[in-house]
Amino acid sequence: MLVMKNINKIFQTADIQTHALRDFCLQVNEGDFVSVTGPSGSGKTTFLNIAGLLETYSNGEFLLDGEDVGKLNDNGRSRMRNQKIGFIFQGFNLIPDLNLYDNVDVPLRYRGFNGKERKRRIEENLERVGLASRMKHLPSQLSGGQQQRVAIARALATDPRFLLADEPTGNLDSEMAQSVMSLLEDINQQGTTIIMVTHDAQLAQRAKRTIQVKDGRVSELAIVTPHLNQAIA
């Protein structure tokens, strides 16, 4: 489903060359729940950005659903993000001027669904995260945990092949974090593949697989599920 082989990402400034990812290899299969941990500056956000097609890589091979990402132009990457990837951000990234309904509607409009289909998907996914009754509320009227649930509903609404979560509980207290984590586990149980970047070792352990990134490489694999050997060294 997601295969990265020898991915390198080099940031070049006038004087300095920074190697954010070095020969990074990873395979994620359908139904996986992979947590990615590592110290600050280890390259895990760079990995997430490349995995989510938010930025390009310097060299290597990256296949997503069998499609060579390196051959896509900007519009192609936008289309693939919209169709195959759902994002959950640490800061929720909801649009403050739009209510919950409209926030979930944003990626659906980019997908080109008609009004009836969009309505069905919005209501279904807000229901799924337990916020159907508040769809006319603005994000500012919700708690952090609820806002993250809306972001999850927005990510799920397009039926993505996998979810990319960037510190999804980073801005939440422990109770809300547990609640959001449980929701992600439920979503994974229902078949959605999840890749989650987190600092929180305890939450990382709840994933089926945990990988650690250090100095831009996958440095260690922690056994949580039998998927261990599917990471490509």
Binding site: R79, R81, F87, G91, Y110
Partner: peptide
């Protein structure tokens, strides 16, 4: 800026 980045992440093309 961040909102525009988010829209791009959610699948908006430059044209959109």
């Amino acid at each position: 800026t961040k909102q525009i980045g988010t829209r791009r992440a959610l699948g908006a093309t430059k044209g959109q």
